[in-house]
Design a protein around this nucleic acid. Structure first.
Lengths: 211, 211
DNA sequence: GTCTATAGAAGGATAGAC
DNA sequence: GTCTATCCTTCTATAGAC
């Protein structure tokens, strides 16, 4: 009888793939893309090294998937903060930016990998795409703010792009492994000086109002 | 008689290296890192393909050198604008930012390669380093502005980083090859709407004053 | 005569087409 | 999914410097 993939087999494969993804995610979260080894991922996922290449074309493709997975989580968090926070659109935007920065500083290894770690071109392409995704979210909030009247009229797309750039670039240094440990622990209560400085610039740029 | 490298030979080698660098630079300026071919560079430099590997360990190393060369030019231009422009520190800073953006939009292929093109990790590392170089220049200008009294007291390092991020991110879209041609020509007379929008955000973020 | 640098093509890997 | 084509890299023979 000819081989035909059964439902059971399909499920097994999907489970193996899921384990690989989960373990790769953990490896990256622990020490970044560059030190993530395919063999380490395979061992912790309980599969043979070669099996990984049955599920992913290459290491780069696996990394790109991990990148998308991890970044999408952050994008969702930002979207959530923008919709569930109280106050006007400017307040919501500020809360979302603050949350983005604080989450990054609380999980600095993964955040560094997502924001700035030099990886390969495939991951870089994902970065470009996801930066646009953040910008679209911010753009929508700015549009709302202009309608509400709490944000001055401006090119919302342009401003949203500036916000993405400013906050990402601000985190590069503090998240950098060469500087890790030099940083004091993140202060809670909306009172971290680094985060406050970033937000000051962003909100001033957005509203043109001194803070 | 044993062979020993003479001054003449050293000069020949240096010239060959220089030709390789120049031709590689032109290739990148014409169509970016990704489409730059070692063989093409070799032919236009008048050397054999293998010869390139006598001067550079790998394609990535050659590219990293081209990146440094090209980016240093831009850094120098910014430094120059910051020192030779008239007016107070805020004016000089604005002029430098404007010039950076306008130069990028006038040479979009090279600018895209330097700012955002997904290349390899070695080039990415150079990018991180050079972004710091820009930030240091801006930081110095902000410090001057705070002393002059034309810029409010703030964390100059943090703000300079935000400026670098905002302006770089703003240019990613307009410089992107997928969008090239969609853009109207750069308007002169300090009147390009894109550049003005970027500068508005940057200067508002810096000074907290509506413009 | 000995050693180096260069040319040019083979090898090997990867990406793209069908 | 396979096959082709392209392109980076390495290798070897040769020309030329000392």
């Amino acid at each position: 009888m000819a081989y035909r993939e059964t439902e059971k087999m399909r499920q097994r494969k999907a489970e193996a793939r899921q384990r690989i993804v989960t373990c790769a995610y953990q490896c990256v979260a622990e020490s970044g893309f560059r030190s993530a080894r395919i063999t380490t991922i395979a061992v912790s996922a309980g599969v043979a090294t070669g099996t990984i290449y049955r599920h992913f074309e290459s290491k780069e493709d696996l990394f790109a998937e991990i990148f998308r997975l991890a970044t999408q989580r952050e994008v969702d968090k930002v979207a959530q903060a923008l919709t569930t926070t109280g106050g006007n659109a400017a307040n919501r935007l500020e809360a979302a930016l603050r949350q983005f920065a604080e989450r990054a500083l609380r999980g600095p290894v993964m955040a560094w990998s997502l924001i700035a770690e030099p990886v390969d071109p495939k991951v870089e392409e994902e970065r470009l795409a996801y930066r646009k995704a953040y910008a679209r979210l911010f753009e929508q909030a700015i549009d709302e703010g202009m309608n509400e009247g709490c944000i001055p009229e401006q090119d919302a797309r342009q401003t949203s792009t500036c916000l993405v750039g400013a906050i990402a670039e601000s985190l590069v240094g503090p998240l950098s492994p060469t500087q890790a440990g030099d940083q004091p622990d993140l202060k809670d209560d909306n009172n971290d000086p680094l985060v406050n400085a970033i937000l000051r610039f962003c909100m001033q740029g957005l509203t043109g109002t001194r803070r």
